[in-house]
Design a protein around this nucleic acid. Structure first.
Length: 582
RNA sequence: CGGGGUAUGGCGCAGUUUGGUAGCGCACCCGCUUUGGGAGCGGGGGGCCGCCGGUUCAAAUCCGGCUACCCCGACCA
């Protein structure tokens, strides 16, 4: 195919759009790939649509290769199935709802688990039909509170979502594994730098959910990686290595000290170090007990939960929430302290918690035999050398302490460093939540119904355009990987000389005949404009046909490396055909 | 929802303090020249200055109200 820039629906911008911050947004707008229509809503212009379609093609090829079958649901959906699963309410303000002329409720699909489950229920009913994997590439709608960063987070976006249906857990594991392998192939073909992180804490089951995060400074997700291995995880999923339990014998007795004016860890440590106790204390020697209220879904009342973490660390609310999911967490208010007088603010200790039946979960570093400085449940008093397993016994451990750079990696290979990423894929063993809601069964060999188990798997297709742009760009513009580039070769005709123009045209025709996708800059603009646009647009190979033609050579420039070589005209088709094939 | 900012031609901006017939660059159209790194000269088209109301002889500019958008945070996967 030859794309003539003289008639291509394209206008590049010399300046950055004022409202674009992140590189992908800036460049995709400047290079004329997308235009903003509404907050979180973009139109795809010819070049952008090509890249989007190319990414779709890669996704479809790999999904088809794993045996998934493509179907397509409407984006406009009736309320009822979402009412059945409770998500009409659960989604809150995050879905677009609308009414038809009769007043019936509809929504614009944010995701389609309900429809897939219902469709399988409607068509299949024998164990012989399973397993089956269905997918669609569909426009999704979410009423994001704050769309941002161009097409990285929009309110309308293109997503590939697939769903597996299996008879048993082993089948689900297998479907999950196959999706994981397929996703790796897709993201590798797109040339992305990414990590696979566990999306849930260990307590909820290891491989039940993983996220694919593309590395990008502009990413919204923080994850950690090990300096010594491939280990990577969401901060919420980091498992703290527990130290060995220590012998209790020989530990000094616990002693209560009068520690006036020490409601914070810093003031306490200062006080202890000035109290002639014969040793030096640090914040890590103290045990900070933070009280929260936890409300289980559907429960009317919240219950108290005490979380004990080493005093040198904050409680990370996101980690705490992930650890108690699906329950809600909230901080205590003054009225809660008033209602529970045994909670002495700033001086809460394990003693009062146990005496009053408050569930007490501690950081995994708090193991049997470790000694702590903590609250004595009395204003201005702390207890020193309170030994875990002797003087107090927690109800269990919880991953709630903040994760910091330099912490030991859970796999013991090195230390953790933090990085930022953009979620590009998510694979998830859903289990029977939706099949239970709709009663999706298959009749087994023995004539008894088998409840089907589901997996759900998503790829943000439109987001990938921006993610690739984010990872492949430089000062001058975009630099597309060949697999998804809008063309293979961007030919700049430099000069108005009629023989140069004719030579370029002839070459373009030959390249086209050889199966090379050519973007032909046949505009009358000056050479500087054409070179700048070629670099901005980011086709992987730039071919300059100009003054060299008189000597029988043209120039081939690699957009990524900037490297340029002169090639004899009669060799250029062969040369470029090889390049494209690689 | 909290904090900050912005709103003037397709894009990027000045003009608002101190009210007086809306301007610059890019892009676009015409002519001549130019053609290997965002050309030059000349001529031209295009704007209810976000919206509503007020003050005034006169409002982009002053006053009141509203709305939209951007950024940070909260929220969201």
């Amino acid at each position: 195919m030859i794309t003539r820039m003289s008639s291509l629906f394209l206008r590049t911008l010399r300046e950055d759009p004022a409202d674009a911050e992140v590189p992908s947004h800036r460049l995709l707008v400047r290079a004329g790939y997308v235009r903003r229509v509404a907050p979180g809503g973009f139109s795809w212009l010819p070049l952008g649509l090509r890249v989007l379609r190319n990414i779709e093609r890669v996704v479809r090829e790999e999904m088809d290769a794993m045996g998934a079958q493509e179907i397509q649901f409407p984006a406009l959906l009736p309320r009822e199935p979402y009412e059945t699963t409770g998500r009409w309410t659960e989604y809150g303000p995050n879905i677009f709802r609308l009414k038809d002329r009769k007043g019936a409720d509809y929504l614009l699909g944010p995701t389609h688990e309900e429809l897939f489950a219902l469709t399988v229920k409607g068509e299949y009913s024998s164990y012989k039909d399973f397993p089956v994997v269905l997918y669609q590439v569909q426009t999704k709608y979410r009423d994001e509170a704050r769309p941002r960063a161009g097409i990285l987070r929009g309110r309308e976006f293109l997503m590939k979502d697939s769903y597996s249906f299996d008879l048993d857990d082993a089948g689900l594991d297998n479907s999950y594994r196959r999706h994981r392998d397929t996703y790796i192939r897709i993201f590798d073909r797109l040339g992305l730098k990414y990590v696979i992180v566990s999306a849930m804490s260990g307590a909820m089951g290891g491989s039940a959910s993983e996220e694919f995060l593309a590395e990008a400074e502009t990413g919204e997700d923080t994850f950690v990686r090990s300096t010594g291995s491939d280990y990577a995880a969401n901060v919420e999923a980091v498992v703290t290595p527990a130290p060995e339990a220590q012998p209790i014998e020989g530990r000094p007795e616990a002693q209560v000290h009068h520690t006036p004016g020490t409601p914070t860890i810093a003031t306490l440590v200062d006080f202890l170090n000035g109290a002639n106790l014969g040793r030096t204390f640090t914040a890590a020697d103290t045990l900070k007990n933070v009280l929260v209220k936890v409300r289980e879904p559907g429960a009317a009342e919240a219950t108290l939960l005490a979380v004990g973490v080493p005093g040198d660390r904050e409680v990370d609310m996101k980690r705490l929430e992930a650890a108690v999911h699906p329950a809600d967490v909230s901080l205590l208010e003054e009225s809660d302290f008033a209602a529970n007088p045994f909670l002495v603010k700033g001086y809460i200790g394990p003693g009062a918690l146990a005496a009053n039946g408050v569930r007490y979960l501690v950081d995994p570093r708090v193991v049997t035999g470790t000694a702590w400085v903590t609250g004595a449940d009395k204003a201005d008093h702390h207890v020193v050398d309170l030994v875990c397993g002797r003087d107090f016994t927690p109800d269990g451990t919880i991953e709630a302490a903040e994760v910091r750079e330099g912490d030991a990696a859970p796999d013991g290979t090195g230390t953790l460093v933090t990085a930022r990423g953009i979620e590009i894929g998510h694979i998830f063993q859903l289990g029977r939540k939706f099949t239970n809601a709709f009663g999706v069964d298959a009749l087994g060999q023995d004539g008894k119904p088998i409840r089907i188990t589901m997996g759900s798997y998503g790829i943000g297709v439109s987001r990938l355009v921006a993610v690739v742009a984010e990872q492949y760009c430089d000062q001058l513009g975009l630099v597309w990987p060949r697999a998804i580039a809008p063309a293979d070769v961007h030919m700049v005709i430099a000069g108005k000389d009629e023989t140069v123009r004719a030579g370029g045209e002839r070459l373009a025709t030959e390249l086209d005949a050889a199966g090379v996708r050519v973007m032909l800059d046949d505009r009358t603009a000056s050479p500087g404009v054409k070179f700048a646009d070629a670099e901005l647009i980011g086709v992987p190979t730039i071919l300059v046909v100009g003054r060299g033609l008189a000597n029988g050579v043209v120039e081939v420039k690699d957009r990524a490396t900037g490297e340029r070589v002169e090639i004899p005209v009669d060799k250029v088709v062969e040369h470029l055909t090889e390049l494209v094939r690689d």
